[in-house]
Write a protein that binds this DNA or RNA. Structure first.
Length: 243
DNA sequence: CCGGTTGTTCAGCG
DNA sequence: GCGCTGAACAACCG
């Protein structure tokens, strides 16, 4: 569920609810979710892993964290965190974080840092990377201020694809390699989107959760890398370490 | 059946 | 105030 492309899929699936009025609200969120009742959905947006439901004067931010899920016109056995009933159809969110954002969402979110956005700016990502040369590239890819939407799977796959060791220093990467990190963070995310839509995402993993490097046929290293200490799979033979 | 995780925030500590 | 660590959250897969 959680990585950026999965949120883009959700956004596409809920398009029929745009402009529709919410007639009833339920769920066990501790936020004041009843204020949503009677409101009409102006738009659905996404920023990285954030799913945004926009109303006239406020926006509901859903973050699925690690375990969150949703159902459209269906229900799960468990109590939803937030349930939106429309005249026709319903939207249910489970085990997620629900937050309210007041005012204009365009002033709060920088769309240029979302790798899935039409407004994505690789130049801004480059500027941010240049400001933190001692950051490990595995940590940089997970930094939502730089690559909003990139998660642990995308991180592992991008680094394998461009043959970069996860513990390489951002500032030591050759310029063209650094540019590949930035370019593939976006390109792989769109590959992820298409594969996920076609239910072939896992089949296309080359590194994430794999035991053997498909290029070298030697065992991958599995290590909890960087200050983010997330599971990282890499090949010490074909992924070059820059330090 | 248990262990681990596509994520983030926050308290506590030195 | 800083960075680091661990807990908390809570669902599903293998």
């Amino acid at each position: 569920m959680p990585e950026g492309p999965s949120i883009v899929i959700l956004k596409e699936l809920v398009q029929p609810f745009i402009g529709k009025k919410i007639v009833e609200v339920g769920g066990n969120s501790k936020m004041d979710i009843q204020r949503i009742a009677g409101q009409s959905v102006n738009d659905f947006k996404s920023w990285g892993k954030h799913f945004l439901i926009c109303f006239d004067h406020f926006t509901v931010r859903i973050h699925f964290m690690l375990f969150g899920s949703y159902r459209i016109n269906e229900q799960k056995e468990t109590m939803p965190r937030l349930s939106l009933q429309f005249q026709e159809g319903e939207l249910n969110f489970y085990a997620c974080s629900v937050q309210f954002i007041e005012g204009d969402v365009n002033e709060i979110y920088d769309w240029s840092s979302d790798v899935m956005s039409d407004n994505w700016s690789s130049d801004k990502a480059k500027d941010k990377l240049e400001k933190q040369p001692t950051t490990l590239v595995c940590d940089a890819l997970l930094d939502q201020d730089i690559f909003a939407g990139v998660g642990n799977i995308i991180k592992n796959e991008v680094l394998f694809r461009i043959r970069v060791h996860p513990e390489s220093l951002v500032g030591t990467l050759p310029a063209n390699t650094r540019d590949e990190v930035i370019a593939q963070a976006r390109i792989y995310s769109f590959d992820f989107l298409e594969w996920k839509k076609n239910y072939v995402l896992k089949k296309n993993w080359l590194a994430h959760s794999k035991k053997i490097c498909p290029r070298c046929n030697i065992p991958f290293i599995k290590k909890y890398c960087g200050k983010t200490k997330r599971r990282t799979f890499f090949c010490t033979n074909c992924q070059l370490l820059y330090q």
